[in-house]
C-alpha cells in the first residue's frame, strides 16, 4: 500500500510540478501580453489617436487666433502700464483698438444685453471682468450660462472694501466644453453693502446664490459666508466650512479683524 501510494504520490508530484511550470509559464506569458497591451495603450494615448486628435487639431485652429493677440501684445502692454496713471473710465474711446477682439466680442454680448446694469471691468488677453449690480446678478449669470460656453466656477473671491462700505464678490468662470474658450476666465463681480457690526445672515450683507446655475459654487460660497459674512440666500447648505461651528468673532477676512500681534 505504502509503496504504491508513494509511487502514485511521486508521480502526482511530478505532474503537479509540470502543471505548476505550465501554469507559471502561462502566467508569465499572460503578464507579457498584458505588458505589451499596456505599452500599446500608452502609445495610443500618447500619439492620441482617439481623444488626442482634438489636441492636435486645436493648435491648428487656435493658431490664427493666437497670432492675433501675439501681434497685439506689444500694443497692449504699453497701455497696461499707463492705465493706473490715466483715468480708467476714459479708456473706451482711446484704447478700444488695442483690446483683444475675441474677448471683447463675448463681453460685448453681455454688456449689450444688460445696458446700465453691467459695467466692463477690464478686457485683457484671456482675462475679462464684468461688474454687475447685485440685483441683476442672477439674470446675468443665467444669461452667461445659456448663451456662452462657461460651464463651471473656478473660484469665488470675497474682498472687503471698508472705505466704500462694501464687500466685493468675484466669481471666476471657466469653460471645459468649448476648446475655443478653454483659455478664458470671466470674472463676474458684484458688490454688497457692508455693515460695521456684522451679524452674518441677519443683516443687509446678502446675495442670491448662483448654485442653481453653477453647481460648483457650493463650497466656495460657504467659504465666503464664513470668511466675510456674506449670506447667500437660496443656498441649501449655509453652514460654516473651515471655521469652527461656534465661531463668535468677526468674519476673519474682513479688514477690521486684526491678526494677533500685528
Amino acid at each position: 500500500m505504502s509503496k504504491s501510494e508513494k509511487k502514485v504520490t511521486s508521480k502526482d508530484e511530478d505532474k503537479k510540478k509540470s502543471d505548476e511550470k505550465a501554469i507559471g509559464d502561462a502566467i508569465i506569458a499572460a503578464a507579457n501580453a498584458r505588458r505589451e497591451e499596456l505599452a500599446k495603450e500608452a502609445l495610443a494615448t500618447r500619439s492620441n489617436k482617439t481623444l488626442p486628435k482634438v489636441v492636435k487639431e486645436k493648435p491648428k485652429e487656435e493658431k490664427p487666433k493666437e497670432s492675433k493677440p501675439k501681434e497685439e501684445k506689444p500694443k497692449e502692454s504699453k497701455p497696461k502700464e499707463e492705465k493706473p496713471k490715466a483715468a480708467p473710465p476714459s479708456k473706451t474711446d482711446t484704447e478700444e483698438e488695442s483690446l483683444p477682439e475675441f474677448e471683447k466680442s463675448f463681453v460685448d454680448k453681455i454688456s449689450s444685453q444688460f445696458t446700465g446694469d453691467v459695467e466692463v471691468g477690464y478686457i485683457k488677453e484671456n482675462r475679462t471682468r464684468v461688474n454687475v449690480k447685485k440685483e441683476k446678478i442672477l439674470e446675468v449669470a443665467q444669461f452667461i450660462k445659456d448663451n456662452l460656453p462657461f460651464d463651471h466656477a473656478e473660484s469665488v473671491t470675497g474682498v472687503d472694501f471698508p472705505e466704500d462700505k462694501e464687500i466685493g464678490v468675484v466669481y471666476h468662470l471657466g469653460s471645459y466644453t468649448d476648446p475655443t474658450y478653454s483659455k478664458q476666465v470671466l470674472a463676474l463681480a458684484t458688490r454688497v453693502p457692508r455693515e460695521e457690526n456684522p451679524n452674518p445672515g441677519n443683516d443687509s450683507t446678502k446675495l442670491p446664490s448662483l448654485r442653481d446655475m453653477f453647481y460648483s459654487v457650493e463650497f466656495h460660497e460657504r467659504e465666503v459666508f464664513e470668511m466675510l459674512g456674506v449670506y447667500f440666500e437660496s443656498h441649501p447648505d449655509n453652514r460654516r466650512l473651515l471655521l469652527p461651528e461656534d465661531w463668535a468673532d468677526l468674519p476673519p477676512l474682513r479688514k477690521d479683524f486684526r491678526n494677533k500681534g500685528r
Binding site: V55, D151, A153, E154, P179, S182, Y215, S216, V217
Partner: peptide, 24 residues
Amino acid sequence: AIRLGTTGSVLRASGVDYDLRIKE
C-alpha cells in the same frame, strides 16, 4: 465632472481633455 467643476486627475479620468499645460 464638468458640472461639479472638478479639475486635474478627477476631470481627466472622466473623459474631459483639459490640461492647463496644453490649454494655457
